[in-house]
Each structure stands twice: as structure tokens, then as C-alpha cells.
Design a binder for these strands. Structure first.
Lengths: 158, 158
DNA sequence: CGTGTAATATTGAGCGCGCAAGCAATCGTA
DNA sequence: TACGATTGCTTGCGCGCTCAATATTACACG
């Protein structure tokens, strides 16, 4: 079936809507940058991107700790995803589990001193890589545009 | 260890570089839009985003077929990733494997008639969802900006 | 007081994908 | 023609994540 060559594309009669172009470019840009930065972070420091993001977010939180459910929302992960992410970070001592005295359901994710030290050790190099990726092909104005416009995409508000 | 509350964040002395803000927003925006659109596509049509993208790309290719390695590059997947993706699509008859007569190493991914029909069935609704996601919060000008600027991020050129 | 409902977190099953390794076919070079 | 290097593709293994189900705690309301 369908072994014939059809010389002309069949579905591209109409122009591609701008939103769809934006969507596919978002997909591709995410895939390549993610692969690059993840590989580097993994090779140099044994962290995934989400490991790093979790440490970073916790370091900004009051008391360096957060309810796991809130961390999940910030990272755009499901609760089970955050459980497994934190399991890894707890296993290597960068985060520890802490109870909440007034609500026994909640467990905090608490950045340890080792976790903070690790973040300090990693962050400069990683931010450098991120800047390299973006600043290599985008002008400062274009980066600002990206920040502004991505901020309006669902989930991009951060 | 580190059970004390430290009232002030410790690592946020300097301002966040714009490129880093762009990066985290790209991560979050991708995660939320992807989750939403993937769930919808999966529930309504049993396809993942990459399934759809593969069908879409093949439908634009000459003769509705492509070398697997080229498809991998377009999708920003590794060759092994594309093997597994196509295995699924072949199993349900949307794509079929075709040999290349002049180079026995290459195997084409060939869109079947069923695959083209499926794409036609799915594409309108899916594009509508994509447009809804983006056009809900972004003006046409902002979407154009997104297209232009994402086009300069590594991998976003396509 | 119970009792139903919601919120928090975890677990098991399964999927998508990358990495490393391997095989087969092709090409370049002498 | 022979042989090493390269290219295209697949496979085994492992990781990160989601979904569905479950346990536990909190809360609202009769």
C-alpha cells in the first residue's frame, strides 16, 4: 500500500498558523538545549536539570525548605515525580526530609548544608553554559523579548 | 544538620541574568504546554506529541517518506529514539518500513494511507488546541515575536 | 462527636527516550 | 582488490516521569 511516489505534499495547502510555528519551534528549541545542558550537568556534576532546578528553588525558599507539593508545582512535576526526584537528592545527602509539626500530612524538602554547597559549586558553571547557549545567537534585546513573551505562555510565568 | 531557619535567602545576592530567566521560563512553558497537549492528543487519538510530529513531518516529505536518520534530526531525537517511535507507529499501521534500493543500510519511514488519513483526522483539532493555548494569552504580534526569537535558539531554526 | 470529603504523599506499573555497544553496508585509499 | 573508517540502524540497559491506586491526615458539617 502507498508505495507510489506522490510528487506534491498533500496537506500543506494552507499556510501554517503562527501559533503552530511557535509551538514546533518551542518543542525543538527545548529538545536541543535540554539535551546539551543536561549532558553537561550530568557529566560534570552528576545532576539532572531538574535536580539543579530543585536545589535552586529550595535555596531561594524561606528556611531553604518547601512543602513537596509546592515544589512540584514550581517544577511543573506531578507529586509522584517530585517524590522520586527528592529520593535521589536525599540519597546523596543534598536534601533531607523534614516533618511539619502542625500538619502531619506534609513533609518538607529541606536543603542541607551539603546541598547548598553543591549548588554554589555548580551554579556558576551551569549559568555560564546557559548564557553561552542563549547569548551565542541572541542579542540582549532578543533575550529580553524571549523572557517577556515566554512569561505569557501558560506555565512560563514562574 | 541545617535544621535552623535562615531568614534570608543565601544565594540571591546578584540579579538573575536574563538568559537564565529565559531558560527557566522555556523549561516551565514547555513542561506545562507539553503536558496539556500530550494528554489531550493521547486521550482523543492515542498519539503522543512526537507521534503526531512524525506523521506531520512525513506528510510534508517527498513521497511521504524519509530516511530514519533524517527524521531523527528533524524531531531532535537520537536514532534509537526514532527506531522506537517508528516501531509504535508501524505496529498500528500508520507508517511502514521501506528499503532503499541503492543503499542497503538505509531504511525509509513511509507514511501509509492510513497514516495520512489519521493525520488528517487529528490535525485540525490538534492545531486548534495549540492555537488555543498560545492565542489565549498572547497577541498575534507576541506570537510572531515568539516565532522569530525561538528561531534563533539552537534547534529552533527548523 | 462521628462521618464524608479533600489534601498530601507514596507506590507499582508502564512508557519514552538516551547512552553505549554492536552489526551490516558503504566509501576511501592504496 | 583489500582493508580500515564511516554511516545507518537496532538492541540492552537504565533513568525520569506520568497515571492509577492507596494510605494517612485534616477539615467541614450534621
Amino acid at each position: 500500500m502507498s508505495t507510489q511516489l506522490t510528487p506534491t505534499p498533500t496537506l500543506t495547502s494552507a499556510e501554517i498558523p503562527p501559533a503552530v510555528r511557535a509551538w514546533t519551534r518551542l518543542l525543538r528549541a527545548h529538545a536541543t538545549t535540554t539535551r546539551l545542558l543536561n549532558a553537561e550537568l550530568q557529566a560534570r556534576h552528576g545532576l539532572t536539570i531538574n535536580d539543579y532546578e530543585a536545589l535552586q528553588i529550595l535555596s531561594c525558599a524561606d528556611g531553604h525548605r518547601m512543602k513537596r507539593v509546592d515544589l512540584a508545582r514550581r517544577l511543573v512535576l506531578t507529586p509522584s515525580g517530585v517524590t522520586r526526584l527528592l529520593a535521589g537528592l536525599e540519597r546523596v545527602g543534598l536534601v533531607e526530609r523534614t516533618a511539619c509539626p502542625i500538619d502531619l500530612r506534609v513533609a518538607y524538602a529541606q536543603l542541607t548544608d551539603a546541598g547548598l554547597a553543591k549548588l554554589r559549586e555548580v551554579s556558576c558553571g551551569h549559568e555560564g553554559s546557559v548564557r553561552a547557549v542563549f547569548e551565542k545567537h541572541l542579542s540582549p534585546e532578543e533575550i529580553e523579548q524571549l523572557v517577556d513573551v515566554l512569561g505569557k505562555v501558560p506555565g512560563g510565568e514562574d
